[in-house]
Computed example of a mutant assay.
Amino acid sequence: MRVISIIADLSVPDLDEAKGFYADYLGLRDEEFNLGWVARHTSPDTGAHLQVLTEDASAPMNPVVTVKVDDIDTALREAQRRGYEIVHPLTTEPWGVKRFFVRAPDGNVFNIAEDH
């Protein structure tokens, strides 16, 4: 398994309200997508980006980070082999992502994802 990218996932009460800060103040003007509960904002100049989310649509909690990988099945097997808690099972989501959530030993929850 290879990590392709890591994206901060920030929990916010309201996506539209958050957009003012992240898009206007920080300059992350390009909204790559907005599913109504999660949106990704990206700088058109540098490509720097982050995601804001209110409440995950299909998982029991919000992750702190999304880690995109090139082989989701290997990532899951390795997490299980190491005894890490899987808090959201491997799922192919309607929005085109295959993912699972794993809890790190420090308690942080990571969204491990592969685009399909």
Rank of each mutant, 00 (worst) to 15 (best):
R2H: 12
R2P: 01
I4W: 06
I6V: 13
I7F: 06
D9S: 13
L10S: 05
V12M: 06
D14P: 04
E17P: 01
E17N: 09
Y22T: 07
Y22V: 07
A23G: 05
A23D: 04
G27Q: 03
G27Y: 03
G27L: 05
D30L: 10
E31M: 11
E31S: 05
E31R: 09
E32F: 11
E32Q: 15
G36P: 05
W37C: 03
V38Y: 05
V38P: 01
V38F: 07
V38N: 03
V38I: 13
A39R: 08
R40S: 11
H41W: 13
H41S: 07
P44F: 02
T46Q: 10
T46E: 13
A48L: 13
A48G: 13
H49E: 12
H49G: 15
H49D: 15
Q51I: 08
L53S: 00
T54F: 10
E55D: 09
A57F: 10
A57C: 09
A57D: 08
S58I: 02
S58N: 10
N62F: 06
V67S: 01
V69Q: 06
D71N: 14
I72S: 00
I72C: 03
I72D: 00
T74V: 14
T74E: 13
T74C: 12
R77C: 05
R77H: 15
E78C: 02
E78G: 02
R82C: 07
E85F: 06
E85D: 12
E85K: 14
I86W: 01
H88D: 02
H88L: 02
L90A: 00
E93N: 08
W95K: 04
W95V: 03
V97L: 14
K98E: 01
F101K: 00
R103S: 10
P105F: 03
D106K: 00
N108T: 12
F110P: 03
A113N: 00
E114Q: 15
D115P: 09
D115W: 15
D115K: 11
D115I: 12
